[in-house]
Structures are given as structure tokens and as C-alpha cells.
Amino acid sequence: MTSFVFVTGNANKLKEVQAILAAGNGDITVTSQSVDVPEIQGTTQEVAIAKVKVAAEKLGSPCVTEDTALCFEALGGLPGPYIKDFLGNLGHEGLNNMLKGFNSTKATALCTFAYSPGPGQEPILFEGSTEGNIVPARGPNAFGWDPIFQPVELGGNRTYAEMAGEEKNKISHRYRALEKLRAYLSEKAQKEKKDN
């Protein structure tokens, strides 16, 4: 059995992560804890590494942090890892307005899970992405920018917010990154079992 602390204060993120992991073989348990970590400027990868290193030091245990980016093709990848601030300041309509005058509404949803085996150890990154388009908000406004992101998969005619949780979890950027983390941790647990 492998376990780690998922560093988040977001109950929706925790619920989604637990649901995705439960669909696997069930050998990974996740608890969560909110830890104050610095939000540095940089690429998604740089932000993820800095956060998980600080979290591992503060917790003194294996932990995982998650960083989500929404990268608009027309804006050269922005808002990227700063989507939370952009969404908070502009709202869904403001994010759509940023693309007025551009020929592309294409966007990539990117999730980066950073895993630290513990304090002082080098983090490992697991990334997943989903391609889609930015559209006027549709569906429940329960989870960040889900109402304006319409993935091209599954017919490409519904936003994340319009999908049932199980359906979204099969194609989401979070699922794809988490599946890589799950595979890594399962392999690590099997190797440790064999070595003992």
C-alpha cells in the first residue's frame, strides 16, 4: 500500500483525485493537507518543483502538489500557470474576451503533479494534457474554468462542466497526469515489496 499527502485545500480537487485513483487498482491511499507554499513565477514545471520541495520540508513526508495551466494558443501559452489569478480577476467572460480579435480559440489544459518522496529528495513530475477550445461559459460553475473549456474529445460539443464527473475523469488533463503518477507509485511499491 502506497500513501501520500496531496497538498491542497480544494475539496473538489481532492475528490477528483480520489475518484481517479479509486478507479485504478486501489493500492494508493491519499490524504490531504493544506500547506502554505510560495507561488513563484516561472513555467508550470518550475512552479511545481518549487512548491513540492517546500511542502515536503514542511510536512516531513512524501507528498504531491498539483499545478494546472490553461494555455491559449493565440496568446502564446498564456495565461498558463497563472490561470487561477486570471480567472479570479476577469471571470469566464473576461477570459473569452481576451481572445477577441484572434483567429484561434484553441487551448491546452495542462496538469502537472509533482511527487516528492520526502524532504531533501528530488521531485518527479507527471504531466497530462487535453486539447480543446475556449467557449462562452456553459454548465455548472462549480469547478474553476470548466464551464469555458470544451475538449475536442467525446464529440467536442460539451464543456468540462457539462460532463458527468466519471466522463470528464476519463479524458481530463488531471486524469492523464494522475495515471502516470499512479503507475509510477504502483511500480515503486511492487519493487519495494520484491526487495523486502
Rank of each mutant, 00 (worst) to 15 (best):
L178N: 00
E122R: 01
Q18H: 14
S61D: 12
P123L: 03
Q18F: 12
E57V: 10
A164Q: 15
G165F: 14
K51P: 11
H173Q: 12
L110T: 03
Y175C: 11
A69E: 10
L78K: 01
E162R: 05
F4E: 00
Y115G: 00
V54E: 13
A183L: 11
I83M: 03
E66K: 01
E153V: 15
K13A: 01
C63R: 01
T65W: 08
I83R: 00
T31Q: 12
K106F: 07
P119Q: 02
T8E: 10
E122G: 05
G9V: 06
G91S: 02
Y82S: 07
S186P: 09
T68Q: 08
W145T: 01
N141F: 15
G91E: 08
L185K: 04
A189Y: 06
V7K: 03
N169T: 09
I28F: 00
S3L: 08
L14I: 05
K15C: 14
V52P: 03
T112H: 01
S32T: 05
I83E: 06
V37I: 09
Q150D: 09
L125M: 06
T8A: 14
Q190H: 14
R182V: 07
T105R: 14
A189K: 09
R174C: 09
S34V: 13
M163Q: 11
Q33I: 05
I49M: 04
L185S: 05
G118Y: 07
F86N: 00
E16T: 04
L59I: 00
F143G: 01
L90G: 00
G156K: 08
Y175K: 03
M1R: 01
G144C: 11
A69N: 05
V35Q: 04
S129P: 10
T29R: 14
S116D: 04
K168G: 05
A23I: 01
F86V: 07
D36I: 08
S61L: 10
N169D: 15
N89K: 12
E16H: 04
V135C: 05
E127M: 15
N25W: 09
R174V: 02
E179F: 09
M163K: 02
Q41H: 02
R174N: 10
E93R: 01
P81H: 00
A164C: 11
A22N: 12
D195N: 13
V17Y: 02
T112D: 00
K53F: 02
P62S: 09
E73T: 12
A19I: 08
